[in-house]
Design a protein around this nucleic acid. Structure first.
Ligand SMILES: [Zn+2]
Ligand SMILES: [Zn+2]
Ligand SMILES: [Zn+2]
Ligand SMILES: [Zn+2]
Lengths: 152, 152
DNA sequence: TCTACAGTCTACAGTAACTGTAGAGGCAAG
DNA sequence: CTTGCCTCTACAGTTACTGTAGACTGTAGA
């Protein structure tokens, strides 16, 4: 029987040890068996489950959506429309952010090319930041545009 | 001399009242004068400053970068290369995020079109989430170690 | 066996950039 | 004077983790 400590599981899935414990604390991972001294021991199903979670997180699925996907997996005879809808919702979210980011890229590019060097007093980057009236995008309603998930 | 309460400033800049107080607490906005009863009173410079902050935030600049831009504004005779570098860094960040999101969009689209409806037991969205071999995005390339048989 | 050192444990605090809430007091209209 | 909205402070909650302290455990080399 293969049983691995949390460090091995971490190496196998490239999920940090602290993150694994965090997933357990929020109920994404089941509580594993423990050794006599209290260390967590995982089997192969934990590797699978954690790989699933990591892939979904990498695709930007929020934790509640992943929780839902996991709970659906134990009902193989149900219709998969629910699963597909979660994925489509996530695709919509990704596309919405893409559109936003394209607008931001356009304005940043415009700002930067407008500046031809010189003194701060006449820097068109600062000018553009100060005057929103001339923006290419009338509404960049993006709060967490970049906050989504920094690379790791 | 025009002086406005925090609510008017909020309406003028479309920044929420609580957010304005938050910006003050982290030192992005100067502490304003107060009325006899202790309410904040703002002048026109606050509108300008807050508009600048909002625009920069909308473009995804992190708060420390904005703090730097503001501190540079009071040195009009300096060279604007620093400003431009901050903007270019932000542009790079936006482009990096764009590339990532494009990969995510591609994989989500692929997952969803692969599913032709049916039962959860054979939903290819769930299958794709569980198996990384066919990933389009390089972020989890080289994870064939995880290829294990789905138990149910 | 001793010892060094890496791994693991719990519990809690910190991150970014806010948002929400409670409970108290302020201000203008009717 | 009352109604109703505005503002105040202080603090907790959000998301998905990450980092730290301080103690214990497991293991490999001398
Ligand atoms: Zn410039
Ligand atoms: Zn703009
Ligand atoms: Zn399906
Ligand atoms: Zn993938």
């Amino acid at each position: 029987m293969s049983s691995m400590t949390i460090g091995k599981l971490s190496a196998a899935t490239r999920v940090k040890v602290t993150t694994i414990r965090y997933y357990e604390s929020i109920g994404l991972l089941d509580e594993p068996d423990r050794s006599a001294s209290g260390q967590r021991l995982y089997g192969d199903t934990a590797v699978e489950r954690l790989g699933f979670i990591r892939h979904a997180r990498d695709l930007g699925f929020p934790v509640p959506a992943i929780r839902e996907l996991i709970s659906l997996q134990v009902e193989p005879s149900w219709d998969c429309a629910v699963v597909d809808q979660i994925a489509r919702r996530q695709l919509g979210e990704v596309r919405r952010r893409l559109t936003q980011l394209e607008a931001l890229e356009a304005e940043l590019k415009r700002m930067i090319t407008a500046c031809e060097g010189g003194k701060i007093a006449c820097c068109s980057v600062l000018a553009a930041l100060g005057h929103h009236e001339q923006c290419l995008h009338e509404e960049h309603a993006g709060k967490e545009v970049l906050a989504a998930r920094p690379s790791n």
